[in-house]
Amino acid sequence: MIEIKGLHKTFGEQKVLDGVALQIDKGRTTVILGGSGVGKSVLLKHIIGLLRPDRGEIRIEGLDITRLEGKDLNEMRKKFGMLFQEAALFDSMTVGANVAFPLREHTKLKEKEIKEIVAQKLEQVGLEGLEEKMPAELSGGMKRRVGLARALSLDPEIVLVDEPTSGLDPVMAEAIEELIIETQRRLGETFVVITHDIHTAFHIGHKIAMLHDGRIVEEGSPKAFRRSSNPVVQAFLARGEEKEV
């Protein structure tokens, strides 16, 4: 379980997080929803310790990641897998080497075992046999699949996903959402997904939290979230539905 309390972050003059509080349940998918530029990615980067807050804490199974440093921080990070917005694959390496990267860095597995795991992870995301391709040869959707395979290669406890469907066509977006749902169900891991896409949020989330003006203004199950009387949530939902029509 991840517990975020009173998280504040300011960049220069700009206040991005202004007391974020949120509880992320173990083994469930929590979606953090919000418009562009409200600081969703900033929040996600705090959870894995890529950014330090000005104030506040993030407890992961009791340990405050915002206070960890060096080796302890790295040990904590090994519990995470992260899928970046544009996948952030290493473009100097093949697909296979990308997925194998965390295994080569952090385990003492033999090359043969690593190959087997890579093949298995790629198969799970529907890309079997693509080990030798370079990331530049892949479509946006395929890159994200490889990114997910890489995020899962160390069997992490928590998977962070940054805007999984932005910039994808609806069919591809749906396929990625299905992949996330299916993966979460199969592995029972904790997923934290950030998105500005309402459809994605309702499709994959067990819990939805809305980030607005640096705070979580509403949270709850998809059903409860839809019924929220919060005007910000209603405006966001109305705009999203307009777009779908």
Binding site: M82, F84, A88, L89, F90, D91, E105, H106
Partner: peptide, 21 residues
Amino acid sequence: AEIGTMRVTEQIDALFAMAVN
């Protein structure tokens, strides 16, 4: 150019996130 590209495409963040300095 190489490290700069890695920075703007979040590959450096990805290294940090995978506990690689």
